[in-house]
Amino acid sequence: MIIIPAVDIKDGKCVQLVQGKPGTEQVVIDDPVEVALKWEKMGAKRLHIVDLDGALESGVNLEIIKEIVEKTTVPVQMGGGIRSIEYAQKLLDMGVDTVIIGTMAVENPDILDSLTDKYTPDQICISLDSKDNRVLTHGWQKSTDKTPLEYTQIFQQKGAGSILFTNVDVEGLLGGIDLSIAEELIEKSEIPIIYSGGITSVDDLKVLRDINTDYVVIGSALYKGLIDFKEALKYQD
Rank of each mutant, 00 (worst) to 15 (best):
S196F: 03
D204A: 03
S58V: 13
K118A: 09
G176S: 07
P75K: 04
V202R: 09
W140P: 07
I199V: 15
Q19F: 02
L233Y: 05
K71Y: 07
A36H: 02
V69A: 05
I2D: 14
A6F: 04
D145C: 11
L149D: 06
I194V: 11
K10T: 02
A44T: 00
F165R: 08
E231D: 14
A221V: 02
K146R: 15
D122C: 13
S201W: 04
I199S: 06
I227D: 04
D214K: 15
V207I: 15
E171K: 08
K118S: 12
G80D: 06
Y119M: 07
G225E: 08
G20Y: 09
W140S: 02
E67H: 08
H48W: 00
V96N: 03
K142H: 12
L128W: 09
G176H: 00
I68K: 01
D97E: 15
S162Y: 02
M1P: 12
S196Q: 10
A160N: 07
T103F: 00
Q153W: 11
V170T: 12
M94L: 14
A6E: 07
L91N: 10
E63M: 13
M94V: 04
K158S: 06
M104T: 03
I154W: 03
P5D: 07
G175S: 14
E25Y: 05
G175W: 10
R83I: 00
